[in-house]
């Protein structure tokens, strides 16, 4: 079983309240990622550049904004680039950080090649041993819908590994639709929203 990418981001947006959502890779896609469904764009942080660093960026936001929840929506390939960040997060242990991992098993935006250890890597287990307060693995839409509020009510840091149906992209990069906002613009928008 697995969750459709679009269903996952729609549910995260519906249950976020005033949380910041930081997305990367598939979760950031203009057609089936958060930008296609978000009703809270001013609190979205679509991250481009610095591959693998979504968890680190989210940690910084969580430390800076301890009274606001920060939801990082990472990819499995992205997290594999920055596995040490699990220990960095576990060590600082921000209670307001919720680290979602879209585990689709592939590098979806480069044509669907499997990530190393695809299907065998236990991200939730690694996060637990790295010091996260709670970890979850969810592989269907109904469970995600019914459990999200409870997960977000608990103190973090929490890692939620979601089994996601991959949406493979084979269109040459120069022909793909681009986000309406660059990372730089989105950063400025978020800075403004947080300063209000």
């Amino acid at each position: 079983m697995a969750i459709e990418n679009l269903d996952a981001v729609r549910l995260l947006d519906e249950h976020r309240h005033d949380a910041i959502i930081l997305t990367t890779m598939s979760a950031n896609n203009v057609h089936h990622g958060l930008p296609s469904v978000s009703k809270n764009e001013h609190l979205d942080f679509p991250m481009g550049g610095a591959m693998g660093k979504a968890s680190s960026l989210g940690l910084g936001l969580a430390l800076a904004q301890p009274d606001r929840k920060v939801m990082v929506v990472d990819g499995d390939g992205s997290l594999l680039m920055n596995l040490g960040s699990l220990v960095t997060v576990g060590n600082k242990a921000p209670e307001n950080l919720y680290h979602f991992v879209f585990e689709n098993g592939v590098y979806a935006i480069t044509g669907g090649q499997p990530v190393p250890g695809s299907g065998d890597t236990n991200f939730a287990g690694m996060a637990r041993e790295a010091g996260y307060a709670s970890v979850y693995e969810i592989d269907n839409t109904e469970d995600l819908a019914t459990s999200l509020d409870g997960i977000l009510e608990q103190k973090g840091p929490t890692l939620i590994c979601l089994k996601i149906v991959p949406v493979i992209e084979n269109t040459p990069v120069q022909f793909r639709d681009r986000p309406s906002r660059t990372t730089q613009i989105a950063m400025k928008d978020l800075q403004g929203a947080l300063a209000d």
């Binding site: 942080f45 910084g60 430390l63 800076a64 960040s85 960095t88």
Partner: peptide
């Protein structure tokens, strides 16, 4: 001053960027 230890240096700029967007001075 809050110390944020990391496991690898490339994390530092990303954490600092998050802190900066969130209104801090890292």
């Amino acid at each position: 001053v809050d110390l944020v230890p990391v496991c690898r240096e490339g994390e530092t700029m990303a954490i600092a960027a998050g802190l900066w967007v969130g209104g801090k001075r890292p």
